[in-house]
Design a protein around this nucleic acid. Structure first.
Lengths: 143, 143
DNA sequence: AGAACATGTTAGCCAAAGCTAACATTCTAA
DNA sequence: TTAGAATGTTAGCTTTGGCTAACATGTTCT
């Protein structure tokens, strides 16, 4: 199977990605906020993601339509089972990339870099990076 | 300086990124094609990027307006000095990420993963990854 | 209870980057 | 040299995910 070049957008179209990067960002953040407060609201989420409330409303509607969250107007946002499963995977993915960058010694914009890279990696790469980080932490960094 | 979360798009807006991912993809590919044929045309570029010709025309116009390429209707596409500088950096970035993934033992969709990750990393991360790959190749993999 | 404030929603705009259909130009070869 | 094929362009549509302005709803305090 020959591998071919595409533009970034081209890969998205070709793979018919189910979750856009933005959808992932919102779900991941809802998951994070749910762990603390259990009462996630539009305003809170908007602040956390540095986005204006109408953008959040719009995205929440979409996530609700696709069954990642349960929401009713003026109410609070709850992840469904499906949303929670994905949320925890996304958070784990975030953690793996963050740890890797930290272990690499990255100093500047480490959160931003994590957020960008996490959307790019697939399961295989994530797993390899995870193993590599463990290896570096256990066998290399101590010396 | 506190680091905050943004959506992917949010980072782009906030950092006022000069080159979009797509622009990078086109410049990188023009650079690659220039190395072989010197005569880069819309059709060739469209095929290489798996994009329809009108998309290429549109992007080339934009790249020309911003002085990355020189182009006139129905003619062939040439990188400017500025375009060439960036092109070579983009190709080097591609190479570094590809080598890293290869050295990680990634087997599936390695090109696609390279193409996605390369847009995400900044200079610092790229440099660290480069060093890490060299280290792995020299000190670890041989054993 | 009702005023004022906080929060949420709607409508409608924008840019990016794809696409198709229709048209224009250039090249090739009879 | 002119017809047809190949290539390129234009116009205009689509989706995504932001934004602001204006409006709606809920909450709180006097």
């Amino acid at each position: 199977m020959k591998e071919e070049f595409y533009t970034l957008k081209g890969y998205k179209i070709k793979n018919e990605e189910i979750l856009s990067s933005s959808m992932e960002d919102y779900i991941e953040m809802i998951y994070r906020l749910s762990q603390k407060s259990d009462q996630v609201r539009v305003r809170e989420l908007s602040l956390a993601l540095n986005v204006q409330p109408p953008s959040t409303t719009k995205m929440i509607k979409r996530l609700a339509k696709e069954n990642y969250v349960i929401y009713e107007r003026y109410g609070c946002i709850k992840l469904t089972e499906k949303g929670r499963d994905i949320g925890s995977k996304l958070l784990e993915r975030h953690r793996i990339i963050f740890d890797f960058l930290e272990c690499l010694g990255v100093k500047e914009n480490i959160l931003e870099q994590t957020e960008k890279i996490e959307h790019a990696v697939n399961d295989e790469v994530l797993e390899k990076i995870n193993e590599l980080t463990k290896f570096l932490k256990d066998e290399i960094l101590p010396f």
